[in-house]
Design a protein around this nucleic acid. Structure first.
Lengths: 209, 209
DNA sequence: CTTGATCCTGACCTTTTGGTCAATATTTCC
DNA sequence: GGAAATATTGACCAAAAGGTCAGGATCAAG
């Protein structure tokens, strides 16, 4: 629909669109769509407001571009699940990767959190479309593993939800996590251990059963 | 600090403040603080904008009142954990109660989600104060149970985080959950089963170990 | 039924903010 | 080096939104 990756783009365009999206990521993830202002984005990008509007026609367009651009990065780890791998290892690796994404890309996590909280006005088609299909693929793999008795029988879709919820929680609610833990804690390091144990115990197929 | 539960309050005051807070809950939980407008709140409450401002001095005050008022409701279930009860039952009951809160009070869940996402500007003292103490109390109970070998050894604080994350996910990300599941699913009914199984398997102390 | 307190509102003010535009600067490319 | 394309901005606009206020309506109490 929207023009994307135009073949022709000057270096200046490339650089400035980059700067704008980077600034917008900070602004939107900190304040939500309504809370962020074009002025904030412009300042973060080191550009003037009209100049920002020169590259993106509207605040909405910046937001939409940002979301669609980052969606691939965000969903990539799920594609990393190897259907031929050892089931438990594959799931645990996915969990670990997602947790690291929360640690390394908390702004992205919050950006999506805001969007979905709001009712996903810019992502609704994607949620029921591409995302759903991607989940369905993964669910098929998980279901097969369960069928083969190599993974404890759990609802695969809710398994995926729980991975998302548990890992993104540490980015989206970081303030709360840190406040409750108090100083002297590394939330992500602790979470890594906790979550590995959680999913291992839930999904392991005990010999004696 | 702020005047609360003044002994004297006319029926009109009582009713209108109620209406305003109810309308504000809808507005704030749907759009976040910045996204909600006093006009929206006024309309939802069936009052004029100046009239809303007559009862609450500012938008900020409405928000703060709402948060502090609802916090008790929101945290109450944690106090329901009985230190003398059967450990696993107590935890599972807490999980189930929290999940029902997400189902029955999704607006409240989203209200807090927005607030924490934003960095909890109106709750920061509470997070590191009352909430933390409340968590510490519960952690003490859980730690004792683990010590007594009646619960599998897990980090109690992260156990609490995981309960929050997993239950509130169904309210905060409801759009996503429904989009991915597609029609013909009852997210909460399925979650109830899934989560009970999850926590049971994680926390159960197997005999043969 | 009167009077003081409470309640309510239309009109208005100010700030913020998304967005426009004409004019100017800069870059590109022949 | 100069024309055409591209990039940039100060000034401005209109709408949205938080908040004020004087005055009128309504209610409670004696």
């Amino acid at each position: 629909m929207t023009d994307e990756n135009q073949p022709q783009m000057t270096r200046i365009q490339q650089k400035n669109r980059e700067l704008i999206l980077e600034g917008a990521l900070g602004a939107f993830s900190a304040n939500g769509f309504r809370g962020a202002t074009i002025d904030q984005i412009a300042e973060a990008a080191g550009l003037s407001k009209p100049n920002v509007l020169y590259y993106f026609g509207s605040k909405d367009e910046i937001h939409k571009t940002l979301l669609t651009t980052l969606l691939d990065l965000w969903l990539a780890p799920m594609l990393g699940i190897d259907p031929e791998g050892e089931p438990l290892d594959e799931v645990l690796r996915y969990v670990s990767t997602k947790l690291q994404m929360s640690r390394d890309y908390p702004r992205e996590s919050r950006l999506f959190a805001y969007e979905v909280l709001q009712g996903a006005p810019h992502l609704s088609e994607i949620l029921g479309g591409r995302l759903r299909e991607l989940v369905d693929q993964t669910v098929a793999i998980l279901a097969r593993w369960i069928d083969e008795g190599r993974l404890a029988p759990v609802d695969p879709r809710h398994l995926i939800f729980s991975i998302w919820a548990l890992t993104q929680h540490y980015a989206d609610f970081e303030v709360q996590v840190r406040a409750v833990l108090g100083p002297g804690h590394d939330p992500y390091a602790e979470a890594e251990i906790y979550l590995e144990n959680l999913f291992r115990r839930m999904l392991e197929v005990e010999a004696g059963r």
